[in-house]
Design a protein around this nucleic acid. Structure first.
Lengths: 215, 215
DNA sequence: CCGGTATCTTGACAACTGTCAAGAGATTGT
DNA sequence: ACAATCTCTTGACAGTTGTCAAGATACCGG
């Protein structure tokens, strides 16, 4: 029975592939945690292994080198982030509701995932020096830009007011607000989250061209 | 003559201090160049020394350790940056002139000092992981915020229109625009500078509350 | 239960790091 | 011109890094 044998081989192969992929994800999670804690410059492969259940040699069994490991991590990060605010867009019925939801969601992200986001900014910066990460980082950045654009353009629709800036500017603006809030938050400022919430709402309002009030 | 001897000692001491300070600045310049080229994670003291006229040992003659060297570099960077746009503020006679000058100045900075600014973002990020640099980075960030605020509030004055956001939000917004433009510029996008110019002008306009058009 | 394959550990390697000490060389006051 | 001090080079150190190979262990089909 060549067919049965073949199917079995396939099944085995697939099981192995699954297990292989699963362990890669597991190790990448340990790497993400370590990187988020120590930063890119201070994280060694041995540090990562110590945050996992394995020894340092196993990393080279699942990843060809450090660059492939970190690239894999960056991609894994993306999956978590990119749809984070889509629920707010789908559910919002009024511009005010969307505005409030967006501000609250940004503030919540700030406190819940502060270390993961400082890692993101760290890796994005690395890509300015090292070509190895550039394409992956750029792709994620564009995904985030589209995510922000979904919010902003929906707000524009709901408010019936056109936007004063294009997509890349809108993303840059809110990214800047978040990054500045992150700096303050990690420096211990107690009102960083609330301040971000307020600023996000104010800026979102500002980016739409308000119709003449008495016309 | 104790007085003459004393004065001479002082003179000598001051001359030595000057020479000492001068060499520190010289080495810090080499360090800044190296860091801007390689990034924080990949720059070693030997790399820095190789970009100077001296050997690697001399760095420990002028700086107690790597942290002090880099801290000194960061402070040196600040001096160059913090008054960069003040001429524009002083000379602008109309809101339109200020707006155009600001956009053009940001775009010029982007192309002229791209590598120095990617270093700034790199070091600011390091301060999110390493307390050693935190206070210096925070201080510079606040100086930059004040610089942006001088522009934005002057624009508000000239236009006779109040601002929709506070100082920290204004800084965050323009910093975000610049950083995003820097990413694109270093990735080879040919229109990054012009796009930054346009976005800066649009956003500056948006941040002021325009009076009802027909009132 | 056996043999082979997949998985993991251990230990080693060469290169690189920040730091420092010993001494050579240069400069300065007298 | 001499001696003291400042300046700089050289070479070494202990620790860390990414990488890899040899071998131990676990798993699985037959």
């Amino acid at each position: 029975m060549p067919e049965l044998a073949e199917r079995n081989r396939d099944k085995v192969a697939r099981r192995q592939v699954d297990k292989f992929a699963e362990r890669r994800a597991q190790l990448a999670a340990a790497a993400l945690q370590t990187l988020a804690e120590l930063g890119y410059a201070r994280t060694s492969l041995r540090d990562i292994a110590q945050n996992s259940d394995f020894s340092h040699g196993v990393l080279h069994y699942y990843f060809s080198d450090k660059i492939e490991l970190i690239t894999y991590c960056v991609r894994q990060y993306k999956a978590e982030c990119v749809t984070r605010y889509d629920g707010i867009v789908a559910l919002a019925g009024s511009p005010d509701e969307l505005k409030r939801g967006f501000g609250a969601a940004m503030a919540a992200t700030l406190v819940e995932e502060a270390t993961l986001h400082r890692l993101w900014y760290d890796l994005r910066n690395q890509s300015l020096f090292d070509d190895s990460y550039r394409s992956d980082v750029l792709e994620i950045d564009q995904s985030l830009e589209r995510m922000i654009w979904r919010i902003v353009s929906k707000f524009s629709d709901l408010a019936g007011a056109p936007l004063a800036v294009p997509s890349n500017a809108a993303y840059a603006v809110f990214d800047g607000l978040f990054q500045q809030a992150l700096i303050r938050y990690l420096a211990g400022s107690p009102d960083a989250a609330q301040n971000l919430d307020e600023n996000v709402q104010r800026v979102l309002e500002s980016l739409t061209i308000r119709p003449p009030s008495q016309a």
